[in-house]
Structure formats: structure tokens, C-alpha cells
Amino acid sequence: MSHTVEELRATLAVIYVGGDSSEPEIRAWAEDHGYVVVGTVSSSEDHDPPGRIMELCGWNGARTVLVRDLSTLGSDLQSAHDALRKLYEAGISVVFVDRGLRVDGRTALGKLLMEMLSMATELAASHAQRQQPRRAGRPPRSISESDLMELRGRGMSVRAIAKALDVSKSTVWRKLRELESRKD
């Protein structure tokens, strides 16, 4: 039985391993599923793994990259999404070995995965932004050190200084403590 060049290219694959040592398992999976491994890229050895994958695929005519799971593609959702987008744009399919799932940017499943990842990264960014600690109350007002020291030098009380500078007494006390701590 003879195979076309396209059919043969579809069986060529590059393995991409993250920080774990999953290469032997992925190689075994590839052999069991009819893939011919033409190279391996490691996130710990390559500064631009998607670029290196595309380079290896270009040299060997491979159009498939085998990964353990989505977390292999990036340390967070955004970096995994970016890596997957780069591979899709280069016409490279991704096989998630743990799920036995082959996806690429031309199929409905691949487009759905990219859309879901886009939504998940937006949700994660929004959630992280909401988790930022917030100060209660109004932001502290700034007052001039020279004005404060001049009024304090005249022997004015904190209440009188606050009224003269149109700030609260706590703002005056905070600034005085800040100035005292700098002297020490």
C-alpha cells in the first residue's frame, strides 16, 4: 500500500516536553499511534519553544507537535494560549497525548479551543485585577513638608495646621510621624 506525501507528513511529529520528564511516555504513545518522531523540544532548553518547534517542523516537513497536556505549552493560561496560537498560525496541529485529542486552527474543535482559552485568559486577568488589595476610604492627601514645618514652627496645634492646610488632623499627624521617622 503506497502513501501520498501528505499522508506521510501527517505522521511526522515533534515532541514538546515541559519541565517534566514525559518524553519516554510521549514517544511510546507516538509509536503506538503511528507517529514518527523527528525531533524533541524542551521548555527548559529552548528560549523560544514555539519558534524551535516551527523550525524543526519546517526542516522535517512535520505538521504535528505532541504534548502531554495544555499546561506543557505554557506556565499560565496566557502563555499557553499564545504558544498554541503561534503553532496554529504556522499550520501545525497539536496532539494532547493525555487526552488523545488532535486539534488545529482549521477545525471547529481547534477554533473552539482557542475561543475558550481566550475567554479563560480574560477571566483570569479580570479575577486577578479584582483581587488587588484596595485601601479603604479616600486616598491620602499630600501636603507640603515646608508648609507643615513652617506652621508647626510657629507653635500651631495639629488642629490649627489641619484647618490652615484644609486637610484632616490624621493627615497632619501621619505627615509629622513620617518626617520624624526620617530624622531617625
Rank of each mutant, 00 (worst) to 15 (best):
D147P: 00
G137I: 10
V172D: 01
E25D: 14
G51C: 09
V95H: 01
F96Q: 03
P140A: 13
V158D: 00
R134Q: 15
S146T: 12
S181L: 03
S44V: 11
I53A: 03
I15D: 06
G61D: 01
S44N: 14
K86D: 07
D32W: 02
V158N: 00
A125Y: 09
A80M: 02
E178A: 11
D69H: 07
D98S: 14
S44W: 11
G18M: 14
H81P: 04
S21F: 03
L151Y: 03
S22K: 10
T40S: 07
A10E: 14
A90F: 08
A30C: 13
S21Q: 15
Y35Q: 06
G153W: 06
R134S: 09
R135Q: 14
Q131G: 13
G155K: 04
D48Y: 10
Q129E: 15
P133V: 08
A164C: 04
E122S: 14
V103Q: 01
S181G: 11
V97P: 00
G155E: 10
D104Q: 05
L12Y: 08
T171C: 13
L151N: 00
V97N: 01
W59K: 05
M119Q: 14
S75E: 14
V172R: 08
Q131I: 11
V95G: 01
R99T: 12
C57P: 01
G19P: 08
S118T: 13
Q132S: 11
G58K: 03
S79T: 15
R106T: 13
S118V: 10
R85C: 03
R106L: 14
S22G: 13
H127Q: 14
P139W: 11
S21N: 15
D20Q: 12
G91D: 01
S75V: 05
D166M: 03
E23D: 03
S170T: 12
G51T: 06
A83P: 06
I53Y: 02
L101V: 08
S126L: 09
D46E: 15
L70T: 13
D104G: 08
L56W: 01
R9S: 03
E55M: 01
R177D: 12
T171W: 10
K175A: 08
S43A: 15
H81G: 05
D166K: 09
E6I: 08
G153A: 04
N60H: 11
R152W: 15
K86C: 05
V65R: 03
T121G: 07
H3W: 14
P133K: 07
V95R: 04
I92T: 02
L113W: 01
G137M: 13
M119L: 10
